[in-house]
Amino acid sequence: MIFTIVVQGAPHSQQSADSALRFAEAALAAGHQIHRVFFSGDGVHNGSDLATPQQDERHLPRGWQALVEKHQLDLVVCIAAAIRRGVMNDAEARRHDKAHGNLADGFNLSGLGQLAEAALVSDRVLTFGQ
């Protein structure tokens, strides 16, 4: 089955952020496909390279990056939600006169159209809510 996953929860604030990653790991391990993971709302914080949880805690950005390496997962961070929350790549940072970007490797900024497109080609869209 082809899934699209929507993540609205921020790491450490909402368990849904962790549940989304665990679902993705389990679905891929079971042989399913994930067309795209779309991070919206507070979920954009999953893509912050500056996140530094304590060593004995789950590190969600790294968890997603591991799935990119192993399964070429497509991680899209909603650009409108991200830049207003201070998550952006270097190009956006320059455009907005910021000293540097902080989007973690493996994540890409794009728009809501990526969610609409993903829904059209997926068998199921699962929302991990805020």
């Binding site: 609205q8 409108a80 809501l112 497109e117 829904a119 805020q130």
Partner: peptide
């Protein structure tokens, strides 16, 4: 922000 995100998503899907 969820209400606004919902409306934005609805409009985006309609554009498709």
């Amino acid at each position: 922000n969820l209400a606004r995100e919902a409306l934005d998503s609805a409009l985006t899907v309609a554009v498709f």
